[in-house]
C-alpha cells in the first residue's frame, strides 16, 4: 500500500515537472515573426436602410455585399470573404494572384487557387452590373488596395499594379510589342566567387537601347537560398534601372552551380 502511494506520488510529480518544462519549452523556442500582411477585416454597415457587409483592406472598402446567401447574412458573408482573403495572403499570395474566373458557371473572384467570393446575378443586379463585371470591379478594388503605396508631398497615393514609383518618378512596365535583344556585361555587387559574364536583355527597342550593363545583386534568403537579382542599368558601372527590360539569357564564368 505504501509502495503504491509512493508510485502514485512519483507519477504525479513527473507529470507536474513535464508541465513546468513544457512552459519553458514554449518560451525558449525560437519563433519566426510572421511577415507583415495587409490588415483584412469585415464589418456590418447600413446603406439606404439596408444591412450590408463590407470587406476592408486597411481602411479601404474593397467589397460590399448586399445579398444574403447560403444561410449567411451579408455581414456574415463579408466575414467569410475576409477570412478567405486573409488566409490566401498568409499563404503568400500577392496582388498579382487576384483573378476573375468561373466556377460552376458562375463568375468568381479568386486569389491563386482560393475562392474568395461568387459574384452572383442578384449581387450584380444590385450593383447595376453583370456577374463578370462585378467580379472584375471587386478584383480592381482588391488589387488597388493591395498594391504598394507611396507617399507624396500632397499626401498618400496608391499606385495601381504594373506601376511603381522609382526615384520619385512614376514609371510603368511597357508591353513588349516589338522586342529586341542585346548582350551587355554583368557587373557584380556582393557576389561570392568569380562573376565575369554577359547577359542578354530583352524589351522594347527604345528601352533596350538605353541598357549598358546588368548589375547583379546577391542576397541570401533564410540561409538556404541565394538570390541573384539582375538589374538592367543605363550606366556601365552603376545601377540606374531601365524599366521594361529583363534578362533572357546568361553567359557566365563559374558563377552558378545548379
Amino acid at each position: 500500500m505504501k509502495g503504491l502511494r509512493i508510485a502514485l506520488l512519483i507519477t504525479a510529480v513527473t507529470g507536474v515537472s513535464l508541465l513546468i518544462s513544457t512552459d519553458g519549452w514554449t518560451q525558449g523556442g525560437t519563433t519566426t515573426p510572421p511577415p507583415t500582411l495587409p490588415q483584412v477585416s469585415a464589418r456590418a454597415a447600413t446603406i439606404n436602410n439596408m444591412p450590408v457587409g463590407e470587406v476592408l483592406i486597411g481602411d479601404t472598402v474593397v467589397l460590399r455585399i448586399h445579398e444574403a446567401a447560403g444561410g449567411y447574412t451579408p455581414s456574415q458573408r463579408a466575414g467569410v470573404v475576409a477570412g478567405r482573403l486573409e488566409t490566401a495572403l498568409g499563404q503568400g499570395y500577392t496582388v498579382n494572384d487576384i483573378l476573375v474566373g468561373q466556377m460552376n458557371n458562375q463568375a468568381v473572384l479568386m486569389m491563386g487557387n482560393n475562392l474568395l467570393i461568387t459574384a452572383d446575378a442578384g449581387e450584380a443586379s444590385v450593383n447595376n452590373s453583370t456577374p463578370i463585371g462585378l467580379a472584375t470591379n471587386w478584383q480592381q478594388n482588391v488589387m488597388t488596395a493591395l498594391a504598394p503605396s507611396s507617399t507624396t508631398t500632397a499626401g498618400t497615393t496608391t499606385t495601381p499594379p504594373g506601376t511603381t514609383t522609382v526615384a520619385g518618378t512614376q514609371e510603368t512596365w511597357p508591353a513588349w510589342t516589338n522586342p529586341t535583344t542585346k548582350l551587355v556585361p554583368i557587373i557584380s555587387l556582393g557576389t561570392p566567387g568569380a562573376s565575369l559574364g554577359f547577359a542578354q536583355v530583352t524589351g522594347p527597342s527604345d528601352r533596350v537601347g538605353q541598357v549598358h550593363s546588368v548589375v547583379q545583386v546577391s542576397a541570401v534568403f533564410e540561409r538556404v537560398a541565394r538570390v541573384f537579382v539582375f538589374v538592367p542599368s543605363s550606366e556601365t558601372l552603376g545601377m540606374n534601372r531601365v524599366q521594361g527590360v529583363a534578362v533572357t539569357a546568361l553567359l557566365q564564368y563559374q558563377v552558378f552551380k545548379f
Binding site: 536583355v201 537560398a225 541565394r226 538570390v227 537579382v229 527590360v245 534578362v247 546568361l250 552558378f256 552551380k257
Partner: peptide, 14 residues
C-alpha cells in the same frame, strides 16, 4: 510566354 523576362535567379544549393 512572351513579354516576360527574368529579373532574379534563386539557387537553393547553399
Amino acid at each position: 510566354v512572351s513579354g516576360v523576362g527574368v529579373s532574379a535567379v534563386i539557387d537553393f544549393h547553399i
